[in-house]
Amino acid sequence: MTIDEFKRRLKWFDEDRDGKIRKDELADAVRVSSGWFARKKSKCGIRSVDANGNGFVDDNETKNLADFAGKKHLNERILHL
């Protein structure tokens, strides 16, 4: 999947439509994609990709999340075109 496809897919989990992904929203995404250890993976994901430390993954940090997902943490293969 491309980075744009990844962003569109991620928006499905943005429950409050604020353009940011919270830890529990990321846990839902992890649960759908890989199932196992969703809470732990989402906590690790937020911690590793949240560049400004606000506890959310916003649009500027989505590339970081795509890199995290591409490293077999979320069973996704992201193509950076």
Rank of each mutant, 00 (worst) to 15 (best):
E76S: 11
K43D: 15
K72W: 04
D14R: 03
D59H: 04
R31I: 02
G19W: 03
C44P: 00
D18M: 00
G19D: 04
W12V: 09
G35F: 11
V32S: 12
L65Q: 14
C44E: 04
N52H: 03
R22M: 06
V49I: 09
K41W: 03
D59M: 05
F37R: 14
H73Q: 04
N64D: 14
K41H: 06
L81M: 02
V32Y: 15
D24M: 05
R17G: 11
N54G: 01
D24G: 03
L81W: 06
R17Q: 00
N52L: 02
V30G: 04
N75Y: 08
I21V: 12
R31K: 13
E25I: 04
D50N: 15
A27C: 01
T62G: 07
K43Y: 00
L10G: 00
R17P: 00
K20T: 09
R47E: 15
V57W: 10
R8W: 02
R47I: 03
F56W: 10
L74C: 05
I46H: 00
K40W: 08
G55A: 03
D59Q: 06
S48C: 15
M1D: 12
A69P: 05
K43F: 02
E5T: 10
A38S: 15
T2V: 02
K23W: 00
R22P: 03
S34Y: 11
R39I: 01
K20A: 09
K11F: 08
S33K: 14
K7G: 01
K71R: 13
A66S: 11
A51H: 09
S48F: 15
F6A: 08
N54E: 13
V30R: 10
E15K: 00
E25G: 08
E25P: 07
G55N: 08
N75W: 04
R39G: 07
